[in-house]
Simulated assay, not measured.
Amino acid sequence: MDRSITPRLLTASEAAAYFRLPVTRFRRLRLGEVSLGAKVLYDRHALDAYLDHISGLGRSGQPISEADAALARFVARPRRTSRNP
């Protein structure tokens, strides 16, 4: 992998390190999960949106509006995958 590219999708270990949490605790949060086949990765943008939300800040460092907070909650929700046979 080209190290000059910052990956948007993180492994559980990378995402946990990003949050400075143990991997098992981070996985229980179920934030920003993206399922690619059997592999589960974590979307850095969704993780950032969640952190912005819980800190009460938007990306600009300014307090966020209620609409932006609702969007951050939506983005941070775990995705359900359909299991059609």
Rank of each mutant, 00 (worst) to 15 (best):
G37R: 07
R83D: 14
E33P: 04
D43R: 05
A15Y: 01
L9H: 06
T81I: 13
N84M: 11
V34N: 07
E33C: 09
P63Y: 07
P78M: 05
D43W: 00
V34K: 08
Y18Q: 06
V34R: 09
V40N: 00
L9A: 07
G58P: 04
L41R: 06
R44K: 10
F26V: 04
L29Y: 05
R30H: 06
A15V: 01
T11D: 01
A76D: 00
R59D: 13
R79V: 13
D52S: 12
P85G: 05
H45Y: 10
K39R: 15
S13F: 07
Y50G: 02
R44T: 09
S4G: 08
Y42G: 03
A67F: 08
P85L: 07
P85V: 02
R28E: 11
L41E: 05
R59Q: 14
G58R: 02
H45D: 15
S55N: 11
A49N: 05
A49L: 13
S4Y: 11
A67N: 11
A67Q: 10
R20K: 13
A16Y: 02
L47Q: 01
A46S: 12
R27Y: 00
A76W: 00
R77K: 11
L51M: 13
G56C: 05
V23G: 00
A38N: 15
R79F: 06
Y18R: 07
T11K: 07
L31G: 01
V34Y: 08
D52F: 11
L29Q: 04
P63T: 02
N84D: 12
Q62L: 14
T24H: 15
A16T: 01
V34G: 07
A12D: 06
P63V: 00
Y42P: 08
L10Y: 01
A46F: 01
L21Q: 10
R25T: 15
R79E: 15
S13Y: 10
D43A: 03
R59Y: 10
P7T: 04
V40Q: 02
L57F: 12
I64V: 10
A46N: 00
R77F: 06
L57A: 12
L47C: 03
L36K: 12
R79T: 13
D68E: 15
V23N: 02
R3M: 12
G58C: 02
G32R: 03
G56F: 06
R83G: 15
L57W: 06
I64Q: 15
A46G: 06
L31M: 00
L36T: 15
L47M: 03
A67R: 10
R59P: 12
D48T: 11
A76P: 04
T81M: 14
L29C: 04
A72C: 08
I54K: 08
F26A: 01
F26E: 02
P7Q: 05
L57M: 08
S60I: 03
A17W: 00
L57D: 09
D2A: 14
L9V: 01
R27Q: 10
R28L: 07
R25V: 15
V34I: 14
L10T: 00
G56L: 04
E33R: 08
K39H: 15
L10W: 00
A17L: 06
G37N: 06
I5L: 12
E66R: 13
S55F: 09
R27D: 04
P78S: 08
R79N: 07
A69L: 01
I5S: 09
R59W: 11
F74D: 15
A12P: 03
E66Q: 12
K39I: 14
Q62V: 07
L71N: 09
D68T: 14
